[in-house]
Computed example of a mutant assay.
Amino acid sequence: MKVVFTGGGTGGHIYPALSLWRYMKERESELEAHYIGTREGLESTIVGPLDLPFATVEAAGLRRQISIAAVRTLLKTTRGFFQARRLLRSWKPDIVVGTGGFVTLPVVFAARSLGIPSVVWEGNARPGLTNQLCARRCDAVAICFEESRRYFPGARNVVLTGNPRASEVVSVDVRQKREALDTYRILRDQKVILIFTGSRGSESVNEVVVRVLPKFAEHPEWRCLFVTGEKHYESFVSKLGNLPRNVSVYPFIHDMPSLLPNVDLLISRAGSSTLAEICTVGIGSILIPSPYVTANHQEANAAGLVREGAAKMIREADLTEELLWQSIVEALDDKRLADMKQRAKQFGTPDAVVRLYDLVKGLVK
């Protein structure tokens, strides 16, 4: 099978594509895969070092209002469309799989113009404009939230698959979990709190967290791991005094699937991949949705978990040192934490990658 993956901008668009790619490599003995991204996007850093051929096209975020910037965006996306057509003509894939981000549009549109089947995967409860436009050109749309279905009225086939990233967390074995305990110096019976605000981190959340970390000295039975994001690591560390012994700070954690099964409470944004991991493993969470994303989709992602008591949400506008610390203490109450974990797991889709793979394979002629 020949497959072209495309998606970029953030880890939430890239990692699900890579999860599917890894799963397909195990099951397709003659898999030939390529990845199309942009030169400026995070995908160039993440996909580049892998044994997955990577090419770039031009793409930019679409604008809903007419302006000079909107015209420039349209011209750039049009160039990307013709660049994608040349690549697809050269590779002759059986199918294109788009996982969101600006680059998905020119590639999916190019696939349609060449008669190549395509699938668009949407991770958020409220999809972005790119995937909504692509839905009318592709052969199927895969979704992670049932409420997303209403945003794709013109799509041919909308299928609830879940997030393939979740399946990687489930596949972690006992040895990998134990190695993570050693790597992150987690003692037996310690409750593990992970603070992670996405692949790029969040300067505004970091500013609050830096004032909270000293309080962990009051609770040696807890272990706090804080991931700043590589962009913010140096500036964050420069503001720290002496940290409690049970607190560690990292720029990024690359073996997250191995660590997550050991985590009791996750403080994070509400990106789709993060929520998939929370639910599949069964982790209590305090969600701080990013207010800077299109259509405030992270708050929509979090709302379902909050309604069912599977998570607590703090809007960034309300975030303070006192509120965050109070929320952590309350969430780590034994009874409340056990309840949050149980309720979160009800939303899990451990077979998501299987569902998505079956959908893709079913469209290959």
Results as ranks from 00 to 15, higher is better:
2 K>E: 07
8 G>I: 04
11 G>E: 01
16 P>R: 10
16 P>M: 02
17 A>N: 14
18 L>N: 05
18 L>R: 04
18 L>G: 05
22 R>C: 03
24 M>R: 14
30 E>A: 14
33 A>G: 10
33 A>S: 11
38 T>H: 10
41 G>F: 04
41 G>L: 04
42 L>D: 01
43 E>K: 07
45 T>N: 11
47 V>H: 08
48 G>H: 11
52 L>A: 09
52 L>C: 10
58 E>K: 14
66 I>C: 02
68 I>A: 13
71 V>L: 15
76 K>F: 01
77 T>Y: 00
77 T>I: 10
84 A>T: 02
85 R>D: 00
90 S>L: 09
91 W>K: 06
92 K>Y: 00
97 V>Q: 01
99 T>A: 04
101 G>E: 02
102 F>D: 01
105 L>V: 13
110 A>D: 01
114 L>S: 06
115 G>S: 07
120 V>G: 00
120 V>F: 01
121 W>G: 03
122 E>C: 03
123 G>A: 11
124 N>Q: 01
131 N>I: 04
132 Q>P: 01
136 R>S: 12
140 A>M: 07
142 A>W: 08
146 E>I: 05
147 E>H: 03
148 S>M: 05
152 F>N: 06
154 G>A: 08
157 N>P: 01
162 G>E: 12
166 A>K: 11
166 A>H: 12
168 E>Y: 06
169 V>C: 13
172 V>W: 12
177 K>M: 14
182 D>N: 11
189 D>A: 09
196 F>L: 13
198 G>K: 03
199 S>Q: 04
199 S>M: 02
200 R>Y: 04
204 S>C: 00
206 N>A: 05
214 P>T: 05
219 H>Y: 12
220 P>E: 03
225 L>R: 04
226 F>S: 02
228 T>D: 04
230 E>Y: 00
235 S>P: 00
237 V>E: 10
241 G>D: 12
246 N>K: 08
248 S>T: 12
250 Y>W: 13
250 Y>I: 07
252 F>A: 09
254 H>R: 15
256 M>N: 10
260 L>G: 08
261 P>C: 06
265 L>M: 07
269 R>G: 01
273 S>G: 15
276 A>S: 13
286 I>D: 06
286 I>R: 04
286 I>C: 08
287 L>Q: 09
292 Y>P: 00
292 Y>H: 11
294 T>F: 09
296 N>K: 05
298 Q>Y: 06
300 A>H: 13
308 E>S: 13
308 E>P: 00
315 R>T: 09
324 L>H: 11
325 W>N: 06
328 I>K: 09
335 K>A: 14
336 R>T: 14
336 R>M: 09
342 Q>T: 14
344 A>T: 11
351 D>R: 15
355 R>W: 10
364 V>C: 14
